[in-house]
Write a protein that binds this DNA or RNA. Structure first.
Lengths: 222, 222
DNA sequence: ACCTGAACACCGTTCAAGT
DNA sequence: ACCTGAACACCGTTCAAGT
């Protein structure tokens, strides 16, 4: 983790704000007003400082967001008691990550990171990889399996969060509804038959079902 | 699909630019300079018009992006020959969507839409849902199965695209590398053991493996 | 070392007016 | 109906200077 330069003999001016203070203020803004409102200017105002002062504690806005995700993970990602059966352990660990992230939809902007490599998430990754190995996968396949689970989990959150955002923004009929309006039952019989029930069906939360299917498939196939 | 108001008796001034022209110019800009460079101002300049003229053909920037995705899907989403075996049909249809989307990483901004409900993608959705039903799932579970596949696919693309973007932007060590640098082998033995190989392992393209596992799991479990 | 003011180089979108 | 100019209300970030 990047640290501000070490305060050796403390020459020069004493700091008025700290990195923690910056991240804390950012957390408040996001919690109360949403990510969209988190701007360097707004953040500076919240702290009672200037936009430029922030750049002494944070490289740029992207780093601020990563820091914020870290902060959030450390705060909300509590380790659950895990079942002994390895396959179930994988499911529970993944579901715990999912639950924490799903509760904070703003994460989407940042989440699209490499992996979820927040330090506090590592324990969960360890559990998933270890559980998959205990199910008989090679370490290589276990890592790939973890990736697949992460893709599925991140995708669920991103798609769901964006759908929710759109619904909130403009209450007009969504693009999907318009497309679904006139389906040719000759060409697309299944979709035409399901058109009425599509919205409620896709509104259901089936994250866990899909996760179980994926883990089953990984364990059996692998 | 939203259309500009019907030109009844053509009263008033004749149009100088069309919606197609707008979308076409946007496509060129994105192809040559990247999504980041696609702004209403830049687009107007490209067309030789003013930013405000665009708003007569497109509701706002978000609609422009949806239109652009549509245009892209219609252009590149060609229907492959599908295998007869239903399970394999599902895999091939999903992989075709994935391949088309993976080739255009800018899509990520828009992709996070509701579903991939571009009209031209519907045929693929039909194949997936129908294939899952042919595998013995109920229509409801087939829709849920399609959703799971979509989450997995969208997640793969979003995560991969963002990782690539970060790598391009700042070549400094990534956050993950720093976190992986000092792992406590006592607490996280699997990750510590895999630390060296993590980067190459997660760089491998295992979309198809994961997809197969997921489909297997959906078919067997369901 | 830390903070500030002023400025750079942008955004998407609205409004009132013109043809 | 379609297009324009000017303006509103913002952005993230850099630079040179102050303490």
């Amino acid at each position: 983790m990047p640290q501000p330069p070490a305060p050796r003999k403390a020459p020069g001016r004493p700091p008025r704000i700290s990195r923690e203070e910056v991240v804390g203020a950012a957390r408040r803004i996001v919690a109360e007003e949403g990510v969209d409102r988190l701007t360097m200017r707004r953040l500076a105002a919240e702290i009672g400082s200037t936009p430029m002062a922030l750049y002494h504690h944070v490289r740029n806005k992207e780093e601020l967001l990563v820091l914020l995700l870290d902060d959030y993970a450390a705060r909300t990602l509590h380790r659950p008691r895990l079942p002994a059966a390895p396959r179930e352990r994988v499911v529970v660990a993944a579901a715990a990550i999912h639950e924490a992230l799903a509760a904070c939809p703003w994460i989407v902007e940042v989440l699209t990171a490499d992996d979820l490599m927040s330090a506090s998430a590592l324990w969960f990754v360890e559990q998933i990889v270890d559980g998959l190995i205990a199910c008989g996968l090679t370490p290589e396949r276990a890592v790939h399996g973890y990736r697949a689970i992460w893709y599925y989990t991140a995708g669920e959150i991103v798609v769901r969060a964006t759908a929710a955002r759109r619904r909130a923004d403009h209450d007009r009929p969504t693009y999907r509804e318009r497309v679904f309006g006139d389906l040719d039952p000759g060409e697309l019989p299944r979709l035409a038959g399901l058109a009425e029930r599509w919205a409620p069906l896709t509104a259901e939360d089936t994250y866990l079902d899909g996760l179980r299917a994926l883990v089953d498939g990984l364990v059996v196939t692998g």
